[in-house]
């Protein structure tokens, strides 16, 4: 089984520690949300986990191998990665962007082979964007673009998916659609590790919450164990009330602590 394991991972710049001694295990069958204030080290943690940067100490393992030593093509077979949403450099069609998910399988745009074509078709259908396949990505709404990026990750058919703020700047309805797609991916045996800023959304969809503050993972566990006023105070510096509404935890932020 493909897993991502961090053991005492630290990442430093010259004058400050971005991630301090982080331990994290993540694998198929779970949707894990990473939460933390801006600058808490969430993105750096993901980048170290995936091997884009080398940990200064500790080790990040992907499928039992130090992820920094993996060849890009090898890594891409285990995990798809959605960085914080960035505009596309060229207005490709939705189909072509999704087809880029098959890059590690050797696919060239415009000349897809059978398995690649099927994977792209399936991903388009899963994300409900088949009707947009010929559309220019320059003309999509935020929600459509988010689902296109997600379909691109699904098309890779990797066991793991790592997404950095996949619902940023989406309206509530689109946020729910994206989270449901991720949930569907996990129900089919995948594993999703997602940075989120919406605490209620994370509480509703994630199996586990990983809380970061000032480069450290200060809590990691099921929603009901880790979503507490105390954690919210430490992570975001706010006083908040946590309450149960129709089986889901929700929060009400009262003010800065």
């Amino acid at each position: 089984m493909t897993k991502l394991n961090l053991r005492r991972v630290s990442v430093r710049t010259e004058d400050q520690a971005l991630v301090k001694g982080a331990d994290l295990d993540f694998g198929p069958g779970e949707l894990v949300a990473i939460l933390g204030a801006n600058g808490a080290g969430k993105t750096t943690l993901l980048r170290a986990a995936l091997g884009f940067i080398r940990p200064d100490s500790g080790e990040a393992l992907l499928a039992q191998k130090p992820s920094y030593t993996l060849k890009p093509a090898e890594r891409a077979q285990w995990v798809s990665y959605l960085p914080q949403t960035r505009p596309l450099a060229w207005p490709l069609s939705v189909f072509d962007v999704v087809a880029l998910g098959r890059f590690a399988h050797g696919a060239s745009l415009g000349r897809l082979l059978g398995p690649d074509q099927r994977a792209v078709d399936a991903a388009l259908a899963a994300c409900d964007i088949t009707h947009l396949a010929d559309r220019s990505t320059a003309t999509l709404s935020g929600g459509e673009l988010a689902r296109t990026q997600l379909a691109r990750a699904f098309a890779a058919q990797t066991p793991l998916l790592v997404a950095d703020e996949p619902v940023a700047a989406l309206d509530p309805r689109q946020q729910i659609r994206v989270m449901e797609l991720l949930q569907g991916f996990v129900a089919q045996g995948g594993g999703a590790l997602v940075v989120l800023h919406d605490i209620a959304l994370a509480a509703r969809y994630a199996d586990r919450l990983v809380w970061m503050a000032e480069g450290e993972i200060i809590a990691d566990g099921p929603v009901r164990q880790t979503l507490t006023p105390e954690i919210l105070r430490r992570v975001y510096g706010v006083t908040a009330e946590v309450f149960d509404r129709a089986g889901h935890l929700n929060i009400h932020i009262e003010g800065a602590a």
Partner: peptide, 17 residues
């Protein structure tokens, strides 16, 4: 083609930057 998505995403796709 992969670089259309930006360098980090392209590396994630399996591109040797």
């Amino acid at each position: 083609s992969a670089l259309t998505l930006g360098e980090e995403a392209a590396a994630g796709l399996g591109l040797n930057l």
